[in-house]
Design a protein around this nucleic acid. Structure first.
Lengths: 150, 150
DNA sequence: GCATATCCTGATAGACACATGAGAAACTCC
DNA sequence: GGAGTTTCTCATGTGTCTATCAGGATATGC
C-alpha cells in the first residue's frame, strides 16, 4: 500500500515523535533513527531531507543537531508524511487507472470502488501520528528497545 | 491501486467478456483488443498470454483465432484477473510494509488498517466481471464505439 | 581558527515494471 | 502442401524506485 520510501518516512516520523515528543526536546540524529528502524542510513538521509523540505520535520546541523517534528504529532497525519513520496489514492480516481471515470468503467463496480477509495483516503488523511502512538502496546516496545540515551 | 499490467488485463477481460459473451462465440484478436482499450498491442500480447497461462482466458492461433474467456464472466473475479500481475493486499499485511505486525506497528492504527484492507480484499475477491458489465450505462458505450464487425 | 559532528547534495548503480521489435510456431483455408 | 493469419517467445530499450558512495556545507565547542 505504501511504497518503500513512504514506509521509511512513516517509521522515522513515529520514532522521532516518540523520542522527541513536542518540539523543545533534543533532536534525533539520522544515524540513530536509521539504526532504530532498520533502514540504510545513507538512504534514510534523503528521506529525512525530503520530509524537512515538505515541512514535516525541522533539521539542525552540527553537534547536537538532528531532526525534530515541525508540528505536534496530533496535527500530523499519515497523508502528510507519506504524501511527498507517493500519490495517495484520491477521490474521483477510478479503479481502472487514471482515466476519466464516466466513460470507461461500469458504474456498479465504480460506485462500490469509490466508497472504498474514500475510506482509504479518509484513513490516511485523518489518522494522526499521535493516534498511532497512543495504543503503545506494540510499537513502543520495539522502538524503545533500540533507542539509546544521548 | 492496480498497477499498469493489471489494469490492462482487467480492461482486456472486460472487453472480451462483452464481445465474446459465454464461450462459444468468436474469439477476440489481440490487436482488436489492444486498439479498443488503447494499449500498445505488443505489450498487451504479453498480458494476454499471462492471462491464458493463469487460466483466465483461452487462446487459439491462426485465422479465426484469438482469445476467449476460459470461464463464465459470472465466475471470474477481479482478483482472478489482476492476481497474476500484482500481489493484492492480503489479510495480515501490515500498513508498514511486510514486517510482522505485532511488534512494529501501533495497534490502534493497525486494527483500523486491517479492517480497511479486508474490505479492499473482499471487493477484489467478490466483484465479478459479469457484475462490472451489468450496469452498462458507461462502459458499454465506449467499448462498443471501437469494436468492429469481423 | 581549528577539529569535530552532523545535515545536505550530486553522481552512480542495481532491480524491476513497462514497453517495443522481430521472428518462430501453430492453426485454418484454399 | 502452401499461403496467410494469429498467437507465442526471446532480446532489447526506457524510466522509476531503491540504495550506495563520496564529498560539501554548516553548526558547536575548544
Amino acid at each position: 500500500m505504501l511504497n518503500q520510501s513512504a514506509d521509511h518516512a512513516l517509521r522515522a516520523v513515529l520514532f522521532v515523535a516518540q523520542r522527541g515528543g513536542g518540539g523543545g526536546a533534543r533532536a534525533c540524529r539520522a544515524r540513530a533513527i536509521a539504526a532504530a528502524i532498520g533502514v540504510p542510513h545513507n538512504y534514510l538521509g534523503k528521506v529525512l531531507n525530503t520530509l524537512t523540505s515538505a515541512g514535516v520535520l525541522t533539521s539542525s546541523r552540527g553537534p547536537r543537531g538532528g531532526f525534530r517534528l515541525a508540528n505536534g504529532a496530533a496535527l500530523m497525519t499519515i497523508a502528510d508524511v507519506a504524501g511527498p513520496f507517493q500519490r495517495l489514492p484520491e477521490r474521483r480516481v477510478c479503479l481502472l487507472g487514471d482515466r476519466p471515470c464516466d466513460p470507461t468503467l461500469p458504474c456498479a463496480a465504480h460506485r462500490q470502488w469509490q466508497t472504498m477509495a474514500d475510506q482509504v483516503t479518509g484513513f490516511f488523511r485523518t489518522t494522526t501520528i499521535a493516534s498511532m502512538l497512543d495504543a503503545d502496546v506494540c510499537a513502543t516496545r520495539t522502538l524503545n528497545q533500540e533507542s539509546q540515551p544521548s
